[in-house]
Design a binder for these strands. Structure first.
Length: 478
DNA sequence: CTTGCCGGGTT
DNA sequence: AACCCGGCAAG
């Protein structure tokens, strides 16, 4: 798997989508359960279980980790996980999220070899960096000193970067946009969102950090006292590289990039991962799971198919925007998931429109190794811990299924439907008055059975007067 | 659909 | 105030 995705996606928040998902619904679902499996005198395998599965399953996955104690890094991830689970719980009623929460993931229990990541424990510097990245990924406020404390030599400025292709630009543009939209909140809360400079720096940081993790491939984890200077790690051993190479072959297949191995051995050019996150556009029209790779395509689809407009006409009043959401698909995970399920190689062409609807009702049997984050609850908390590989952004509140958050305190007023966080992010999202938003004084329905239920209509005379008057029951209060 | 109950009407 | 009920929202 790829650290970059975790970090990158996490840093841009969720949302969702949302989310959620979350989506909003770009709810988030989270769901990477990381179980570091430490072998004696051996490499540390870090199991990324990309699971948007149910809470119990996730929990059981974590608790069934052969009793391994979590490293400090693991604890961090645990926090992420916890938050993510809460997000998931909050978004449990989200249709998108539900569909994005497959309960059977190929990665569970290590059934998918491709999800193992080799971690190099020899480099504490990387450990610190990773830890910081993870904190950043959770949207925690990182003291500038903490960031600056990283040796500059650890900032892997990509060398010899070649002009990237169209897909790269798309991904980059999407990354920039998403980072610009969210980074000030997540990474630098004090920055005014309108000031582009911090934001751009933020996404640059995100990218560079991401590259640092993905290119060397030798993450470190603080598993023991490794008195090794925090200098850039030497290239991995051949065995390690073989392992890593083996695990990433699927990516090369889909990326259709001839060069495949050099960066893993010596050249830190972050070639491999840059294509992995593909921005897709998913039609949110009811019962339509159309996913297209371009916004214009999805708009055309919506315009013609759902809005019944002339396909020849380019006229657009922007209404289409409300019917699709932008999702980011981890092509690596997707590919790995697919390759693990089917003996045949996936097509080498770009993201086909036929790829399994990532966030929709995916049958368990064809669940792809991917996470959906929807976390459509736009709270900072939910944004802060996306830790997902598929970032979903549901752009419009009314599209996101309403999450009913159980009231905790008595008398707490019911909140209107959660607003997908990207409603804030997207400019074109009109600032509309909150829909209907009833006065909010209505009491939440109580759990207890009332007189009507207890006694029935036959014994209506046994009801309390309030019940008889169709008022709030006074006998069986909550 | 049932259930709970708010809001408002009538006595 | 006591009583009744239309209608809404949640499940």
């Amino acid at each position: 798997m790829d650290a970059r995705y975790i970090l990158e996606q996490s840093s841009v928040g969720t949302r969702v989508g949302g989310a959620d998902f979350n989506c909003r619904a770009g709810r988030s679902v989270l769901c990477d359960t990381r179980v570091p499996t430490v072998e004696k005198n051996g490499p540390v395998f870090y199991k990324l279980v990309m699971d948007g599965g149910s809470v119990p399953e996730v929990k059981s996955e974590r608790t069934s980790s052969k009793g391994n104690e979590l490293s400090p890094g693991g604890r961090i991830l645990h926090d992420v996980e916890k938050t993510g689970l809460e997000d998931q719980k909050d978004t449990g009623s989200s249709g998108i999220l539900k569909r994005a929460s497959p309960t059977h993931c190929p990665g569970i229990n290590g059934q998918l070899p491709g999800v193992f990541m080799h971690l190099d424990i020899r480099n504490p510097g990387k450990q610190a960096e990773l830890a910081n990245n993870l904190r950043a990924a959770q949207g925690r406020i990182i003291p500038p000193t903490a960031i600056q404390s990283l040796p500059s030599s650890h900032i892997p400025v990509p060398r010899n970067r070649k002009p990237s292709g169209h897909a790269d630009k798309e991904v980059m543009a999407a990354t920039v946009l998403t980072s610009l939209s969210t980074s000030p909140l997540v990474l630098n809360p004090s920055s005014a969102p309108t000031v582009p400079e911090p934001a751009s720096r933020a996404w640059k940081d995100v990218l560079s950090n991401s590259y640092s993790s993905s290119t060397s491939g030798n993450w470190s984890w603080d598993t023991s006292d490794q008195s090794v200077p925090s200098t850039p790690s030497p290239p991995l051993s051949n065995d390690t590289n073989k392992t890593f190479l083996h695990l990433t072959q699927g990516d090369d297949v889909i990326e259709d990039v001839p060069e495949s191995t050099h960066f893993m051995f010596e050249d830190p050019i972050p070639r491999k991962r840059k294509n992995s996150m593909k921005v897709m556009f998913k039609c949110l029209w009811k019962n339509c799971e159309k996913v297209l790779s371009t916004s214009s395509g999805i708009q055309r689809h919506i315009r013609t198919v759902h809005l019944g407009r002339n396909c020849d006409s380019d006229y657009s009043d922007g209404e289409e925007d409300f019917y699709y959401s932008e999702i980011e698909v981890n092509m690596d995970s997707l590919t790995e998931g697919l390759s693990s399920l089917t003996p045949t190689s996936p097509t080498t062409s770009g993201p086909p429109p036929v790829f399994p609807p990532p966030l929709t009702a995916v049958p368990h049997s064809e669940h792809i190794n991917m996470n959906g984050s929807h976390s459509h609850a736009p709270t900072l908390l939910s944004q802060s811990a996306p830790s997902t590989l598929c970032h979903i952004r549901t752009d419009h509140a009314y599209q996101g299924p309403v999450t009913h958050v159980r009231t905790v305190s008595i008398g707490e007023k019911r909140q209107p439907a959660a607003i997908t966080h990207t409603t804030v992010i997207k400019n074109h999202a009109l600032i509309t008055p909150p829909p209907k938003s009833t006065p909010g004084t209505r009491k939440p329905r109580g759990e207890a059975k009332k007189c009507r239920k207890v006694y029935g209509m036959e014994k209506r005379d046994m009801w309390c007067t309030a019940c008889r008057w169709k008022k709030a029951c006074q006998r069986f209060t909550d």
